[in-house]
């Protein structure tokens, strides 16, 4: 019952958020701001996680596929596929759900409990649209960029791992990375990322927007936002994989 109530309320909020903005130029300015706030600010963590995870994936694959029957491209190929298909779009989106999601929910939640949202509504502004839509659009534009960067850095991490530890000859690794490369895989990753960006921003926006009470509840909203958007990402990952790859 409770869950259905939330889903209904969430869908109504999404509908309100997607209404035509009252002043396009303000929204445009907000989108640029949010791209900076949500995107550029996450670049550091995305880069660090990607390089290290790429390295670990490569080393793991190399250790676990150390068999003379396996082709020389096995390690590079497996690393590339895991990074492009799952690691970059899904794991990085989960990390962004933690960082960006809690940021959005606490920012909007604070505005709710300090009556700033009431102040917007009094003025006749569509508060949900004004606060949430620029974040949704910004994340849907900037997250794919982050994910592409993450793919490059992940593979670079793998390369570094081979270079430093020598678990796999560099030439084999590079051969594997380029082996039967399919652009569709990248498109698949971007589609997933865009859907995840929508989930992160709208779900966190929802929990922030309907915060009740005070500072304590703002903290709670932001935790709930992260948990729920992560669960939605996992579920939609399964659904999208089914739809797009089968």
């Amino acid at each position: 019952m409770q869950v259905l109530h939330h889903i209904g309320k969430y869908l109504i909020l999404v509908w309100i958020v997607l209404q035509r903005p009252e002043n396009a130029s303000i929204y445009r300015r907000q989108i640029i701001n949010e791209m900076d706030k949500l995107g550029l600010n996450s670049l550091g963590i995305v880069a660090i996680v990607s390089v290290f995870m790429g390295a670990v994936v490569t080393i793991q694959t190399a250790f676990n596929t150390d068999h003379p029957m396996l082709p020389i491209y096995a390690v590079g190929f497996a690393t590339r596929q895991s990074i492009i298909l799952e690691f970059s779009p899904t794991v990085i989106s989960l990390i962004l759900a933690g960082k960006v999601g809690s940021q959005i929910a606490s920012e909007i939640g604070t505005m709710r409990v300090t009556e700033q949202i009431d102040a917007l509504e009094i003025m006749g502004v569509n508060a949900a649209g004004y606060l949430i839509l620029p974040k949704v659009i910004a994340a849907m534009i900037i997250n794919p960029v982050l994910i592409i960067i993450s793919m490059f850095l992940g593979i670079f991490g793998g390369y570094l791992a081979c270079f430093i530890t020598g678990v796999e000859p560099l030439s084999n690794f590079l051969y594997g990375i380029l082996f039967e490369f399919s652009q569709f895989d990248v498109l698949y990753a971007i589609i997933k990322t865009v859907v995840f960006a929508f989930i992160i921003t709208t779900v966190s926006g929802y929990f922030g927007f309907y915060t009740k009470g005070g500072a304590l509840e703002v903290g709670r909203s932001s935790t709930t936002a992260v948990v729920v958007s992560s669960i939605f990402i996992i579920i939609f990952n399964l659904i999208l994989t089914q739809i797009l790859l089968v």
């Binding site: 604070t110 505005m111 300090t114 009556e115 700033q116 009431d118 102040a119």
Partner: peptide, 9 residues
């Protein structure tokens, strides 16, 4: 004018 001012911070 709200009880807590409600300025956009």
């Amino acid at each position: 004018l709200f009880q807590g001012s409600a300025l956009f911070d």
